[in-house]
Amino acid sequence: MAKAKGGFTGSSSLEDELSCSICLSLYRNPVAFSCGHSFCKQCAQQVLRAQKQANAPYSCPVCRVELGPILELHKNFHLCSIVEVYLSHNEKQDEGVAVEEDAVPCDLCLDKPQAAVKMCLVCDASLCQAHLDKHSARASQRDHILVEVGKSGSTEERRCQEHGRVLEYFCQNEGLFICVLCSITGSHKGHEILTLKEAHDKNMDDLSRTVDRLQGYKSDISTTLEELQRNKDRIKTNTKTVTSQLQKLFGEIKAQINKKEKKILSDIQSTEKSQLAEFAKLKRELEKKREEIAQHLQSLQKIRQQSNTFCLVKEFKQVLDRTSSHKFGIRKMDMKVVQLNQGNINSFQTWLLDSSSLLDKQLQAVHRLLTNQITWNR
């Protein structure tokens, strides 16, 4: 919890004296150890629980004096009374308004609690604006984790299910958020552990590299689509040219090769149709990949603007998992242009005069060339 406002002369120093050395907030239900040091009851229980889990002897977290195997926590009534008087005196200086029925009350406001605007996960307290300002003013509490009040599941989501402590670290080995006990005595002991700030910085670097990678894929796809369009035009131009040449050749030898003329023209058109169909299929695939990349880029841009470290790491991991499951590789095509030159035509005419069987062989050779004019490079 944060401390109460205003009041006694020298309030800041008195407030420090009345603050728990573990949570750095005013004592709540203070208990005393045998060494004389006092702590909030909840803080003391958490320390003792952690020492027990680590199979370490009970000791005071301040002076490190061992407390014995059997420990009873006795309430410090005198200190509790001093804190209550201090809070009561300070609260009389405040003019708060009653909290609305649907609002979460501040844990530090006494007579007239005001609506809480943030919740500190470390202090386990809901704070109104006045107490939030005082909470954030202390250097020792500036790194505490604050979340929005009233968001369902936000508090539980940020706490360790095993130890009940705030998730302040990130395990690189397993890609999980963990608490300090998980890294010291839990299943993540010995793993590569990062603070949330370090995880944030690393993910920002990974995010930038991912954006660059996807932009590179997008650029390659755009270039391939342009090349695809050029090859499509070349197919049509090449087909038109070959068709014209063949029509002229067949015109000169009308009666003899009329049947052959119709067959080869039909084969050319069929080849063009199948090739253009393959082009259309590849174009649809590339456009779909480009759209998917654009959507991923849009999601990453939104994540880049995310101020909440937890949400940024979580959402970026989700986007990274989605992008890694997609294949954005590009299959290209190598196109060979085939044309009939004058030498081919002269050869045809010579061979036509020699034998119709030779003509058949030449027409079959041209048909094979036209059919194989494009090589797919996958």
Rank of each mutant, 00 (worst) to 15 (best):
K5F: 10
K5W: 10
K5T: 13
G10S: 07
L14T: 06
D16H: 06
I22V: 14
C23K: 00
S25F: 02
V31G: 02
C40E: 03
K41H: 11
A44N: 01
Q45H: 05
R49H: 13
L67S: 07
I70L: 13
I70F: 12
E72N: 14
F77P: 01
I82A: 06
V83Y: 04
S88K: 11
N90W: 03
E91Q: 08
K92N: 12
C109Y: 00
D111C: 03
P113M: 06
A115Q: 09
A116D: 02
M119F: 11
L121P: 01
V122L: 11
A125K: 00
H131D: 11
H131G: 02
L132H: 07
A139P: 14
R142V: 07
V149L: 02
E157M: 11
L167Y: 02
F170Y: 15
C171Y: 02
L176G: 02
C179T: 07
L181C: 06
L181F: 06
S183C: 05
T185M: 10
G186T: 04
G190I: 00
I193N: 01
I193H: 00
L196N: 06
H200K: 13
D205Q: 15
L207P: 05
S208K: 15
T210P: 05
Q215K: 15
G216F: 12
S222R: 09
L228Y: 05
D233H: 10
R234Y: 07
K236Q: 09
L246R: 03
Q247D: 14
F250V: 00
G251T: 11
I268S: 00
S270H: 07
E272H: 00
S274A: 13
Q275K: 12
E278Q: 13
I293Y: 04
L297K: 03
K302R: 15
Q305D: 12
Q306E: 15
T309H: 05
V319I: 10
V319S: 01
T323N: 05
K336D: 11
V337S: 08
N341D: 15
N344M: 11
N344F: 13
I345L: 09
N346F: 04
S347D: 07
A365W: 08
H367M: 09
N377P: 00
